[in-house]
Design a protein around this nucleic acid. Sequence first.
DNA 1: TTAGGGTTAG
Length: 462
Amino acid sequence: MIISHLRAFIKFKGDSFLLPSQNPLSSSRFSPHAALLASLLHSNSFSNNGDRPLSRYQKVANLDDAFNLFDEMTQRRPLPSVVKFNQLLNAVAKMNHFSCSLDLFKQMCLIGVPVNEYSMSIAIKCCCQMSRTNDGFALLASCFRRAVVPNVYIFSTLLDGLVIEDRILEAENFFKKLIKQKLCEPDVVMYSTMIKGLCKFGNNDIAIGLLRLMDERGCKPNVVIYSTIIDSLCKDKLIEDAFKLFKEMVFAKGIQPDVITYNSLIHGLCNLCRWDEVSKLLKEMEEDLRISPDLHTFSILVDALCKEGRVDEAEAVIDIMVERRVVPDIVTYNTLIDGYCLRGEMTKARTLFDSLTSKGFVPNVVTYSSLLNGYCRSLKIEEAMHLFHEMTRKGLKPCIVTYSTMLQGLFRVGRCGAARKFFDEMQAQGLIPDECTYGIILDGFCNNHQVEEALSLFHLVA
DNA sequence: TTAGGGTTAG
C-alpha cells in the first residue's frame, strides 16, 4: 500500500502542473479541508525573506580556515567590528565545534573586542550544547560586568540548556522567575523551549495548558509549538489527541503544517501499525499540500517496515528515495541493517555493512551495535567480539547500548565470567548502567543458575 | 550586518 502510493506519486510529480483533482492517479477529489490546507500553504510559500549573501566570516568551511581568519582579524588595526567576530563565532558553533567557538569568544574578550548580546548568546549556546549549562549561567553573570543587558535570546538559550540536561524543575523555576521578575517577556521561541521541556517529561497536559496561556497572553503559537506537542502525544501513543491538536492548528488557528508535523504523525501511526492511515497521510501531504516527504519521512517508513519484518518493502522504499533524489544517510542504512539482523539475515546485514564505505558512509556506534546485536542473537559471539574490538580499534567509543548488547550475547551462550568482565570494563569507562543493563545482567545470571551473583548485584544497586 | 525552539536509527 505504502510502496504503491509512493510509486504512484513519482508519476504524479511528473505531471505536477496538473491540479491534484485533475490527476488520474489522485483517487479522491479535492476536499474542502484539502482546499483550505492548500490555500494556507500557497499564500505564504513564495514570500521573499530577503536572504543576503553570506559574508566571508559566515562562509568558513572548516576549523583551520576559521582559526586562520580569526588570527588575521586580531592582527588588523583597528580591530574588525564585533559583528564580524560574531559571524565567525557562530559559523564555528554551527559546525558543532562548540568548544572551539567558546575559545574564540574568550580570546575576543582578552583582546578587548567589545562583546555584545549576540556574542554572549552564541557563547552561552556553546556551553549549553556541551551540557555545561552552569558555565552558561556564569557567562550570564558576566553580562552585567560587561554592560550587556541579557535579552530573550540569552534567556531562551539558557532555558534550553536546562531542558537538554533534564533539569526540568530548574527550567520551570527559571521560566517563572523570568516572568515574575519581569526580566523579559517570553516570546514564541521561549514558550516552545519550555513546552519541549514539559513534553520531554511526559507533562503533555501542562504543555497544552501553557499553549493556551501563551495565546491568552497575546503570544501567538506557531507550527513549531504545535508540532512539539503533537510529536510528544504521538510518542506517547495518544494519536487521537495528536490529530485533534493537528486539526485545531490547521482549521481553528489557520497555521499550516510542514513536513516535520507530518513526520511526527506518520511516525505515531507507524508505531501503532495503522498503515492505511499512513498512506492516507502521505497522500494528503503530497497531493493536497505539495509537501514532499524528506529524509526523515523515508527513514521513519524504512524503520517501521523493518520492525514489522517487512524488509523487502523497506528496501523498496530506499529505492524510491533514490529515484526521488532523496539521499539516504547513515540512519537509513543503520535501520535496514537492524532489519536484516532482526530477521537473522546476517549475510545480507554484513554485505550492506561492508558496502557502506564505498557508498561514502562511515559506520558509527549505532551501525556497529546493530550488527553486534545481530551476531549475538544468532549466537555468533566470536563475530560479535571481533566486531566490538574492531570498533574500538577504529576509535569508536562503545556506549551503554553496545555494552548491553554484548552482555546479552555473552549470557545467551553461558559465558557469565566474560559478561562480568565486560560489565566491569563498562563501568571503568565511566558508563553508568541503565535499567535495561541491569535487567540483562539479572536475567543473565538467573538463567545461568547463578542467582547468588544476581542477588549480590541487586543488593549493590539497592 | 551578528544570537535562541519542533521530526529519523541500535
